[in-house]
Amino acid sequence: MLFRTARMAPAAVMVGLLAVWAAGAAQTATGSTPAVPGEAAPGDGARNGNGLRNGDGARHRDGLRDGAAEATGLSVRLGDGTDLRAAEAVHPRAPERREESVRLGERGSAREVTATADVGAAGNARADAALGALELDFGGAVLRTGAVTASCTAARGEPPAGQAGVTGGTVTVAGLPPVELPGDAAPGTVVALPAELGRVVLNERERDGYGSLTVTALRLEPSTRADGRAADRHGTGVAAARVRCAAAPPEPARIAVAAAGPGGEPVGGAAFEAVRAQDGLLETDCVTDDDGRCELFELDAGPHDVCVVTVPPPWTPPGQRCRTVTAVAGSTVDAGPFPLGRRVPGRTGAGARTG
């Protein structure tokens, strides 16, 4: 049986349950997960309903267990009904897409729109999206760019990374000087447009609770004044060069344990547990078989306190019940045998144990 539970005093458990209930009620009321400052809608690092821990190297949800890579060259959705997505690549079913020319109705056009997405055999992900040029009239203003690029990489066991850039980007409003968009914008740079026509977000980063990173090189949010209806991240607007990467999670670790009597004979039925040393989280337990062995599996890498919990009669626990063992991702570490004593029939106290 696999356990993932923290050890707490009863009072702490009650306080924790009340806190969890209150947080859940608040989230239900708002319909969203609280954001961490500096990140757009990230996960909170807590365990989800399936017992998985989000974003800290534990197993991902099923859809990301092998890694994920997606890329979109251009996405346009405006209030006049313009709704278009060009060059969408998704690993593994559509790893590469290219469109030489994209017409945006009477609004404008884009050229050389590309997207690639790949996850290698080792579970490392990469995605790239780009367009050669874009011109778009979004109502009262014209967005023009040269090359727009975004890329992301995610290596197993490491946080994903990304980069983005815009060349020659401007927004022109009639009668006003062009607004220049910086080509080397810091992540999350916001450029407010004149005449309350909206805003442009550059080099946008979003992380979710399952370890994935989304990078959008340029996102235009036209205002209701420009586009005729409200805009938001998932509503009207333009996203140029958007990519998403998530590496496969690290392989879980295992620790092999054994129970042996005073003469080295194997002892079956001895129960062991592994507690993560850094925070006291009980990760798993096992019971030895007739050969006196069992494995503590699905562990995070790092130090664990491995302890003998119970032993069957006539055996007695070792004098030192616990050892600190460092688990290694993708490997089985042998913790060695734990020597048990044997209770002498008819004796109690100090003379009741041998070995």
Rank of each mutant, 00 (worst) to 15 (best):
A230R: 14
A230F: 13
A231M: 01
R233D: 14
H234T: 14
H234S: 14
A239E: 05
A239P: 01
A240F: 02
A241F: 06
V243S: 09
V243I: 10
R244L: 13
A253D: 12
A256Y: 03
A256T: 01
V257F: 00
A258N: 00
G261Q: 13
P262Q: 06
P262Y: 08
V267H: 01
G268P: 05
G269D: 12
A271R: 11
A271I: 07
F272S: 09
F272P: 04
R276M: 12
Q278C: 14
G280C: 10
G280P: 10
L282A: 15
L282I: 12
T284N: 15
T284V: 13
T284S: 15
C286W: 05
D291L: 07
D291T: 05
G292F: 02
L296C: 03
F297R: 15
E298M: 10
L299T: 05
G302S: 09
P303D: 13
H304A: 06
H304F: 07
H304W: 07
V308I: 03
V309R: 13
V309D: 12
V311N: 01
P317C: 01
P318M: 05
P318E: 07
G319Q: 07
G319R: 08
Q320N: 11
Q320I: 10
C322V: 02
R323W: 04
R323C: 03
R323V: 04
T324P: 02
A329P: 12
T332A: 15
V333H: 08
A335N: 08
A335I: 06
G336S: 03
P337M: 01
P337N: 02
F338G: 00
F338A: 00
F338E: 00
P339F: 03
P339H: 02
R342T: 14
R343G: 03
R343V: 03
V344D: 10
V344E: 12
G346K: 08
R347M: 08
R347W: 07
T348M: 12
